[in-house]
């Protein structure tokens, strides 16, 4: 690997090169690889690109893939939320079987601050500190004054479609006062749970518990959490006139622009971030040897989309806290393991 390519992943038409990082001791002559924080601080940077109530896009620069990946894994599977875990079916005469209905109910995101609740182990009894109760009591009936020949079930029948807004929160203990400011409810009111026809009823009690995505995907606080590497398009030789136009059209709009320099129209990369690295440009003979597609190996573009239970910036903060906590636990465990081993000897 050449020195200037040390943090570039090179994309060729049929393969990808320089995939593994080389920031280990003795990879390059006379290069010192920093182990401690001072070295890390020199290269590390973080930038928030976009922040909305449900989404965040940020750049994590100067870290290894293992750290970016740990963050992603924790976001998906280790941040706790509340979700429906137990469904006590009292009556269900609808077309949907009990277990399918229960599974659908479980996936509804519930707006409740998970930090306000305790973990519930299988042996623990349900209390107002670890369980949220919802009721679903619905019955479908024929509508009144329905015009002759009407075919739309929404007009013909009452409660023909059951939505998440029909879940009734049943506060226990002091929950009513604890959550007076922000009552517990499904995040979205318009999630279709099932459909009924006149005479069919559903009556059940739902218990929400605290859990993590590792246990079941319904506990995952993110809709998506992913990262990609920043693309870097290197033009090695000027691309002019008609070729420049073809070159520009090889990329998504806004990546390459044509600028005029000394009376010559040249292709210029203006925003490589928008590139999808489709490799279209490598299919054309006239660009052979003139362009190089690369990605920056230590520049991660993170995209986190929350389900709405926890704000995206709080999610990233919590993920980092959990990562630190994992290190703490490992360190303490290591200390005690060393102690234990010494005693045995």
């Amino acid at each position: 690997m050449a020195l200037e390519d040390r943090n570039r992943v090179v994309i060729l038409e049929d393969r990808v090169e320089n995939i593994s990082g080389a920031d280990f001791p003795m990879s390059f002559d006379g290069e010192d690889v920093p182990f401690h924080l001072e070295g890390f601080k020199k290269t590390f940077d973080i930038k928030i690109i976009r922040l909305t109530p449900t989404d965040i896009e940020f750049d994590l620069i100067g870290v290894d893939a293992s750290i970016a990946n740990a963050l992603r894994r924790i976001l998906i599977s280790e941040i706790p939320t509340m979700a429906i875990e137990k469904v006590y079916m009292i009556n269900n005469t609808g077309i949907m079987q009990d277990e399918v209905l229960a599974h659908r109910l479980g996936l509804i995101p519930i707006l409740a601050d998970p930090n306000e609740f305790q973990w519930k182990r299988p042996s623990d009894p349900p209390t107002d500190q670890n369980t949220i109760v919802f009721k679903l009591d619905v019955a479908c009936a024929k509508g009144r004054d329905v015009p002759e020949g009407e075919t739309d079930p929404k007009i013909k029948y009452i409660n023909s479609s059951i939505y998440s807004s029909q879940l009734q929160w049943d506060p226990k203990g002091d929950q009513e006062t604890r959550f007076a400011q922000n009552p517990i409810r499904p995040i979205h009111d318009d999630i279709l749970i099932t459909k009924l026809r006149p005479g069919q009823i559903i009556s059940c009690e739902l218990h929400c518990e605290k859990g993590i995505g590792k246990d079941h995907a319904k506990f995952s606080p993110v809709a998506t959490a992913s990262y990609r590497l920043l693309p870097d398009i290197q033009i090695l030789e000027d691309i002019t006139d008609d070729d420049a136009e073809l070159f520009r059209d090889c990329f998504p709009p806004g990546v390459v622009d044509i600028v005029e320099e000394d009376g010559v129209r040249k292709a210029k990369v203006i925003n490589p971030r928008k590139d999808t690295v489709s490799r279209e440009v490598l299919r054309h003979k006239q660009f052979e040897g003139k362009v190089r597609l690369t990605r920056v190996r230590d520049h991660f573009i993170f995209n986190v989309e929350s389900t709405g239970i926890v704000s995206p910036e709080a999610l990233v903060n919590q993920a980092l806290d959990i990562l630190i906590e994992k290190c703490e636990i490992s360190k303490a465990a290591l200390d005690s393991a060393v102690k234990g081993n010494n005693e045995e000897e």
Binding site: H36, L37, F40, F44, V316, N317, L320, D321, I324, C327
Partner: peptide, 17 residues
């Protein structure tokens, strides 16, 4: 060393926010 790095990332993220 990892704990220090993550603490650094966390405070950098807070500052950025």
């Amino acid at each position: 060393s990892l704990m220090l790095e993550y603490g650094n990332i966390r405070s950098a993220f807070d500052n950025e926010l």
